[in-house]
Design a protein around this nucleic acid. Structure first.
Lengths: 210, 210, 210, 210
DNA sequence: GATGAATGAGTATTCATTCAT
DNA sequence: TATGAATGAATACTCATTCAT
């Protein structure tokens, strides 16, 4: 057992080592320009070793998102379960959580939005894909629950199902991607935090009943 | 003269023929999986011919966005110039314009959001790239002007410069991408119009002064 | 006839126009990097027109050499036929002729040496190839005759057949190519005339009896 | 150590395997008509493997020459350093060395003369190019030294600097190329050795004082 | 004759992936 | 497990040549 456990831990350490390297390389070069050899070199491993831990390049790429989604899910669920918070306080907490999610790994979160609705998604192993879908669904579900409580409580305007959660999430990803692309297009300074703050503030005002 | 003109028109027709084929193929397979041969076959032309009209694969891809951006620019500018509309009416008109922009070519607009902030952007010819940047900048600038008028008129809350335009645009792109990815992930029905409508409504309420 | 003749002359003019353009382009870019379109542009004609005058790229390239070979043949034969010159005077005249041949078109003569013993030679039309071979053979034959006269006259050492002509010719082409490559390798100044002069002087001294 | 050494040797063996195959294919088809796949097939390797050992097609081609140049350099330097030989004996030894250089690898030496003063030379990696240039320069330099000694000793006529070395070298390459092209043009028998011998003999006689 | 748009065969090169050690 | 040499399929792009006008 001790041995088995140690082996398991060792294995996990390798995975992390690869993921960290992959993150750096993918962020710098993008999915297509990054080669497995680049990543192996960055991880100080051989190319062959990468395939002992990840089925292929696309799964390695997708694994990055998984880590973020797990963090997102934990944070969002935690807010949802805070029974002693009033709905509006929960939304405030949710907003804070989203800031943290972005802070947790900004580059990867941008990649994640690219991943979704892209070619890559179609070639993942069913297990990984369903894990990603599951976490996404459960996270957006928890967000939806929070808004439902607010509607039930008479705080927020009632909309078609999940509308508030969808828009909340769209706002988040939209701002993140737009700020990222502004940096590429115009080399403008990064106002993301400020813009995100203003965006959520407007959103909240917009959904609050008089 | 007649001849020259006819040739010019013929040339333009070929470009469109290629663009139409490229749109189909890129939408179906994504940028990387789509081959120039696929596109040539779809256009019922030979691979070599594609290169008579487009410098390379990336420029062909980027050309798709250009058409949309031109349409976006025209619509947004038109709203901006409507001098006999009050600021709030202009924002309503702007929202309508955005619906139309999406309707004009939904698939390509999704591609365009992918294009931005991606590797591809870096390898375009300077001319095409600056044309894209220019149209983006001028369009978002016109949107910003509309909101500024609203602020000056006391309709909307004053924020840091361009905040309203940035958030408006983020909301638009965020909703479009999120709805697109939902379709891939869940094969859910397309509520885009409805979600976009709700999103803009919330946004407007959120920025309106008491 | 008048018409036919004018047409013939017109046709020859076009050929020359193309040859002049081809010479410029081939000299600058070399055979492989030069495109038929480059040549057409230089000749202010369309690519298709080139094929009305030359069967293909290789024949166009070879045609350049033909012009030089014709000039070489004329000069060498002329020396050979000068019945009132003593053998040694003929060799002097031959050397002068070689200078002129080089001066006639230095760039093309370098190309010609590349042409010989290269892949290109193998793909020419039988007619052109035999024309080239014929001129080469007859020219070197005339040179050989000149040296034979010198041997018969007791001026020069008797060697195996054609040895003097072969070495004379090798010396010429060797010096030309070596000086050309020195310019590429070292950007050294062009001493060709001087080196050629010295080379021929040594050669003459080397073959002269006592 | 043992392992590292064996690997190093194995690697060198592969390089040689490729070089041998490349030599065969380039000799038969010439640079342009030879494909990397041809060479890979000949070497019983896959195309990709070629690129593990050579940066690209041109470097592979140039590597062939390098081997000859190294041999040339060794032989020429060796003659130069023979302190107990009189200048004229050194020139005799030099001539012998040149025969050997030609014998060492006749086909490649013809290719080498084509390489020089051609387009190919311009696209090599700086390292390889400078290695080639360096060996050329040092070899011709050593040859020049030998003749200088002869001049200083009163054996040979004094000419402008390096003239004798340049002409010696030109004679060598000129004869080699001319004999090669005669074989292509006329399918004449190979008299190279004989012609070379006569040529050097004439040359020596031509430069010798009284 | 002249054009030049269209062709499409031809190829160097890359890189994810494998597998013998 | 880890390696990294070898693989070989995949593809963007070029350009000599053709042919309808």
């Amino acid at each position: 057992m001790g041995i088995r456990e140690r082996k398991e831990r060792e294995k996990e350490r390798r995975r992390q080592q690869i993921i960290v390297a992959a993150k750096r390389v993918f962020s710098e070069k993008g999915f297509n320009k990054a080669t497995m050899e680049d990543i192996a070199t960055e991880a100080e491993l051989s190319p062959g070793t990468l395939y002992l831990y990840f089925k292929n390049k696309e799964e390695l790429y997708a694994s990055l998102s998984l880590r973020i989604l797990q963090y997102l899910y934990i944070r969002v669920t935690h807010v949802h379960k805070e029974t002693d918070l009033a709905p509006r306080a929960k939304v405030k907490a949710l907003i804070e959580a989203m800031y943290d999610v972005y802070d947790f790994d900004p580059l990867t979160i941008i990649n994640m939005f690219h991943l979704q609705s892209s070619e890559t998604l179609k070639n993942l192993s069913p297990e990984l894909l369903s894990e990603i879908k599951d976490l996404s669904r459960k996270s957006i579900g928890a967000i939806a629950e929070i808004f439902k409580e607010g509607i039930a409580n008479g705080d927020y305007i009632d909309r078609h199902p999940n509308a508030l959660a969808d828009i909340f999430w769209s706002l988040f990803s939209g701002v993140v991607l737009w700020e990222a692309s502004k940096k590429i297009i115009d080399h403008r300074k990064d106002y993301l935090k400020q813009t995100l703050h203003t965006a959520f503030e407007i959103f909240e005002k917009g959904i609050t009943l008089s």
